[in-house]
């Protein structure tokens, strides 16, 4: 006290910890990835294949195959010392073999993104009242919120998906809704998965938000009450704006988890990235290429999410508040 405290922005710390996300190469890769996705989706979903036929890759396979065979021949002629060239040839073989499947995987990525974003966003809307109930509720409300959280955190997500999909009339109800399954709007299984992820991630998100709310000093709500704000208004205008900022790093983890856990939706036939990969692989027996490719696509999604969250954290940063002060 006495002199103004020096403050570092939240991002400086996070970038130092993360390292990966502020590399120019990362930004370039993520840029290429998203350009490809957006062009692909626009062509396939909106323009009805106007730029290039659906299921046809933007990238020709020929040059990669040529490179692979040239390098393969070179490696063979070099004999035992040719192994690095042989690896390079293998890389080009991988690219040549993967390219034809990219369009279908892009469709899977669309479903994965939609699934994750809807699940986390709708879950957030439940998580906020849930965590407020946990911290500020009466004993009954508190117990109810705790019960919900424990139920959804304590049982496997896959089981939750199965129960909602097979054991409730949800699937039938959603199937009857208009526009479900038409064009780029996914079919009913997808929406069941969204509901499952919403309910499940609400429980996890509420844990992050709850501990963030607990780290807002008690005096903040006292001061809010002292100027005549009701408890609810004090929580809304004073506690939550601070608590939610504290929650960003933990919440970002939940987002990253959900990107990967969304692959469980494949078990109830949702045609997301993992399901697409698996389906193509069992047709073509190109398991290695396809799952490496799917892994890279998930990685690109995770890095993109980290970049977005870093940007958000930076935008809402307030001197002396948030990641740096804890």
């Amino acid at each position: 006290m006495g002199t103004p405290e020096s403050t570092t922005s939240g991002r400086t710390l996070r970038a130092r910890a993360a390292g990966l996300t502020d590399q120019p190469l990362t930004l370039l890769t993520v840029g290429v990835f998203w350009t490809w996705l957006v062009v692909r989706w626009t062509n396939d979903f909106l323009l009805d294949g106007a730029l290039i036929e659906r299921n046809t890759s933007f990238f020709p396979v020929g040059p990669f195959e040529a490179a692979a065979s040239t390098l393969g021949a070179l490696a063979a002629s070099l004999g035992p010392v040719g192994f690095p060239v042989r690896w390079l040839a293998g890389f080009f073989e991988f690219l040549a073999a993967s390219i034809p499947y990219l369009p279908q995987l892009a469709t899977g990525v669309w479903a994965t993104i939609l699934l994750t974003v809807l699940g986390i966003a709708l879950g957030f809307l439940i998580a906020v009242p849930l965590s407020v109930a946990r911290v500020y509720g009466g004993s009954a409300t508190r117990l109810l919120a705790l019960g919900y959280t424990e139920l959804f955190r304590g049982t496997p997500l896959l089981a939750q998906l199965f129960v909602l999909y097979f054991a409730t009339p949800l699937t039938t109800i959603i199937r009857e809704l208009p526009a479900v399954g038409a064009g780029f709007i996914p079919a009913q299984a997808f929406w069941v998965a969204v509901i499952a992820f919403m309910l499940n991630s609400a429980a996890y998100q509420s844990e992050y938000i709850r501990s963030a709310l607990n780290s807002v000093p008690e005096g903040q709500l006292t001061a809010a009450r002292a100027i005549g704000l009701s408890k609810v208004d004090g929580i809304r205008h004073v506690v939550l704006p601070q608590g939610l900022r504290y929650a960003i790093p933990g919440w970002s983890n939940e987002l990253v988890y959900l990107i990967k856990y969304s692959s469980l939706a494949s078990f109830i036939t949702v045609r997301e990235l993992f399901e697409r990969t698996d389906a193509i692989a069992s047709e073509t027996y190109r398991y290695t290429e396809l799952f490496v490719l799917a892994g890279l696509l998930y990685l690109a999604l995770v890095i993109s999410a980290s970049l977005v969250m870093e940007y958000v954290e930076d935008r809402v940063a307030i001197p002396g508040l948030g990641t740096t002060s804890r």
Binding site: P217, G219, Q220, T222, A223, A224, R225, A226, I227, G228, V238, P241, Q242, R245, I318, G320, L321
Partner: peptide
């Protein structure tokens, strides 16, 4: 509380 203001020992300014 609209009619009675309070000033705290440790300020309790809204940090955000």
């Amino acid at each position: 509380r609209k009619q009675v203001g309070m000033v705290f020992q440790d300020f309790n300014l809204f940090a955000h």
